[in-house]
């Protein structure tokens, strides 16, 4: 019988740790790549401050467009003193919704923070306060960012309706479909949110006394099971929708009319 010496973890003479032999690092690595790619692309797209409108399509990164310097104004809220990209006026809102989202929290705490990098693998840091102190205690405002996100669903739906209005009247182009798919995925992501599920019915203790809220909660719960999937799908779709509009606006791609 072979006996192998093992180093003991510090104070407790405790059992060995970090025995995983599988490729535990794949998942966090993919998350870093995925989120990293989106952040780089969206920052670049926001800074570009051009090619975000290709009639009748408005890029979701620039919607609603609220500054005087907009190529396609949704509604003017900011005067001409604003000279930077109008994307910065609005992108923060869906940004904080995703930043405080229960799914993304899991994703970035694991892959960027390494707390923990994977199950049964040790935390990278010694100290740990979770979400009890500044700034992470502000994760608790997630429901307010959800309210904002709902507003964006309304606006992007409006954009998708406008994408049916071509100079020659009603029409459907590839871009129309792109914007519609995008807003549907964003809506699925938004309404499958854990806060939404709580606010719409999860707070009830006796469902049989609140049958309407129970039915909504029940449906939302089914969506909620796929919240992570919707998070990735909608993140991809919003990036691709911007890219599509941008390429059309730059003249690199020609939008095909379907109807």
């Amino acid at each position: 019988m072979a006996i192998e010496a093992v180093k003991h973890a510090g104070d407790r003479g405790a059992a060995p740790t970090a025995l995983r032999k599988d490729a535990w690092w794949v998942q966090p690595a993919l998350t870093v790549l995925g989120l990293g790619a989106f952040i780089v692309y969206s920052t670049w797209a926001a800074f570009q401050n051009a090619y975000y409108y290709a009639d009748p399509y408005l890029s979701p990164f620039y919607s609603p467009c609220v500054a005087a310097n907009c190529q396609h104004l949704t509604v003017q809220l900011v005067g001409s003193w604003w000279t930077w990209s109008p994307a910065f006026l609005i992108l923060w809102a869906p940004g904080v919704f995703r930043l405080t989202c229960y799914y993304y929290r899991k994703a970035y705490y694991r892959s960027f923070w390494w707390a923990p990098p994977a199950c049964a693998m040790p935390d990278a840091r010694r100290g740990y306060d979770g979400e009890t102190s500044f700034p992470l205690v502000f994760q608790n405002i997630h429901r307010y960012t959800f309210y904002l996100a709902v507003l964006f669903i309304v606006i992007l739906t409006w954009d998708a309706i406008l994408a049916l209005r071509f100079p020659d009247g009603f029409g459907v182009g590839v871009g129309t479909l792109v914007l519609w798919v995008n807003v549907v995925l964003l809506a699925l992501y938004t309404f499958s949110c854990h806060s939404c599920r709580h606010l719409c019915g999860g707070h009830v203790d006796i469902f049989s006394r609140a049958p309407f809220r129970y039915r909504i909660w029940h449906r939302l719960s089914m969506l909620n099971e796929r919240h992570a999937l919707f998070a990735w799908l909608s993140l991809t779709s919003v990036g691709l929708a911007d890219l599509y509009v941008r390429l059309v606006a730059m003249g690199i791609l020609r939008d095909v009319r379907l109807l």
Binding site: Y102, Y128, E131, H194
Partner: peptide, 29 residues
Amino acid sequence: GLCNITKCCTEVCPEHIRITDNAIIPLKE
């Protein structure tokens, strides 16, 4: 507040209880 919902509890649960989504997050809310 110390829970950062990284979901390992859910992953290891042999009874497949969705601990994070159905218990912890609703409690946080």
